[in-house]
Design a protein around this nucleic acid. Structure first.
Length: 303
DNA sequence: ATACAGGCTCGCC
DNA sequence: GGCGAGCCTGTA
């Protein structure tokens, strides 16, 4: 029986590969000319041909609306970019990231993934996500390729710390487990939190084990459509210090937060993602710059 | 080999 | 209420 044909979706101002490689989601795999991954429970194949996406669901019918919503094809990208502050760093990043969109991820999956991301490089975050999915997530097939959905909170909740540590989570295992159990028991309802305003939502997320300001802001941005949320990680902090706040001393995290909120404005999350992705990808090309020291946060224990 | 990652959390001052 | 150290593990 012949496989169903692709559906197509109009996707102007969109760069699929760039978006999937920008460190928002960590499970999409290249498959031929496209990518295979899961959107919630659905296995999906997506391929970009110019301004059109060819898509296919593992269990037809294919639902273009699910896909266009996931990739936020409705975001007014021109308006968003026009809202950015007009400075050299922002212009460079903005040109470099044309077509990069902030995607809408399922809440638990996003929260869990970022809990496992702390102090990790992208390659390793991907690996942890893959291991958790393969061991504990349901299997799906699309485009002749197997993929796995992210395990639900209640599935994680019934594991123990030892099993999770075997997935290379290290100290993050305890945090993921505790948070999964809170959610599984219904003590926290991620969907209900969606009605809260930004500040309150952030505060509630920060109550979860393993969630601080940075991870909470990632979840606000990638799972709650709060496009003003501005996660500050080591990359962004470096950029802010080097390009925006050179001569300021005594930069507390509170002052950084304030500056970002005011300076980058209503679409700060987009600005952050562009700055972040530009810095991260161009830094790995240079490979040498001896002046690019990892910033003054390196006190390690000597042995 | 060894430093260091897209942090959070404590204990100390 | 700011600052530093410890926590795990894979990658460069």
């Amino acid at each position: 029986m012949r496989r169903t044909a692709f559906e197509t979706i109009e996707a102007p101002d969109f760069d699929l590969a760039l978006t999937l490689d920008s460190g928002q989601a960590f499970h999409w795999e290249r498959a031929g000319a496209g990518f295979v991954g899961a959107i919630g429970d659905r296995a999906v194949y997506v391929e970009q041909c110019g301004s059109v996406l060819k898509v296919r669901d593992g269990e037809p019918p294919t639902l273009p609306r699910v896909i266009s919503r996931y990739f936020s094809l409705d975001h007014p990208l021109a308006e968003i970019c026009a809202s950015f502050p007009n400075d050299p760093a922002m212009r460079t990043a903005s040109d470099y990231c044309r077509g990069l969109r902030i995607i809408r991820q399922p809440r638990w999956e996003c929260l869990a993934t970022f809990i496992t991301s702390s102090m990790k490089q992208v390659a390793h975050i991907r690996q942890i996500s893959r291991t958790l999915r393969r061991r504990f997530g349901e299997t799906r097939t699309v485009h002749g390729i197997e993929t796995h959905v992210y395990p639900a909170a209640r599935r994680i909740a019934e594991l123990n710390e030892v099993e999770l540590r075997k997935c290379a989570l290290g100290y993050r295992a305890k945090n993921l487990l505790s948070t999964a159990r809170l959610i599984s028991r219904g003590e926290v309802d991620l969907d209900r939190l969606a009605t809260l305003p930004d500040e309150e939502l952030r505060a509630r997320l920060c109550e979860l084990p393993g969630v601080g300001a940075k991870i909470a802001n990632c979840v606000l941005l990638f799972a709650y459509e709060r496009l003003r949320a501005f996660p500050i990680d080591v990359w962004i902090e470096r950029i802010l210090r080097e390009r925006y706040l050179q001569r300021r001393r005594k930069l507390t995290s509170e002052k950084l937060r304030q500056f970002c909120n005011e300076y980058f404005g209503a679409y700060g999350g987009y600005a952050q993602q562009y700055l972040f992705h530009h810095a991260r990808t161009t830094a790995s090309q240079k490979r040498k710059p001896s002046s690019t020291k990892p910033a003054p946060r390196l006190s390690r224990k000597a042995r």
